[in-house]
């Protein structure tokens, strides 16, 4: 997943109201990109599933074992940063009480930037 020059402009045209800079800042974070890619495939997911995806993808990319401590960190990051922001951006509905995401809809322009295989 790599952001290509020239792919950006369409992002700003998503209806979320965020500026291009705000989107780019969000998409610059690897954990956020993994989260979005997973949600594109599974629009309803728990924090556990998302933290597992972050841990697993990190393990693949680094060729090492990712342990429970890193999984816990991913959970905290999802709770306090990624999911509330994506909720603000209108990408998903985050249910704090259930620790789950509902009805994630990743804008097509973001999917294109993430280079997710359809």
């Amino acid at each position: 997943m790599r952001i290509e020059q020239g792919d950006f402009s369409a992002i700003e045209e998503t209806a979320s109201g965020q500026t291009l800079d705000e989107w780019l800042e969000l998409l610059a974070k690897p954990k956020t990109r993994i989260t979005l890619a997973y949600l594109h495939d599974h629009p309803n997911a728990t924090v556990d599933e998302l933290a597992t995806a972050i841990a697993g993808k990190t393990a693949v990319e680094t060729g090492r074992i990712v342990t429970e401590a890193e999984y816990d960190e991913a959970c905290i990051y999802l709770y306090h940063s990624i999911l509330p922001r994506l909720d603000d951006y209108g990408v998903l509905e985050y249910d704090h009480a259930e620790s789950a995401v509902r009805d994630a809809t990743i804008p097509a322009a973001v999917v294109a930037v993430l280079e997710i295989d359809e």
């Binding site: 556990d48 995806a53 429970e68």
Partner: peptide, 21 residues
Amino acid sequence: AFDEGFVVIRDADGRFRGTLG
């Protein structure tokens, strides 16, 4: 969503223990 898969080891209670490609 990802090109390469990974395996996750969980204990009997479902708790995450570790993952690798």
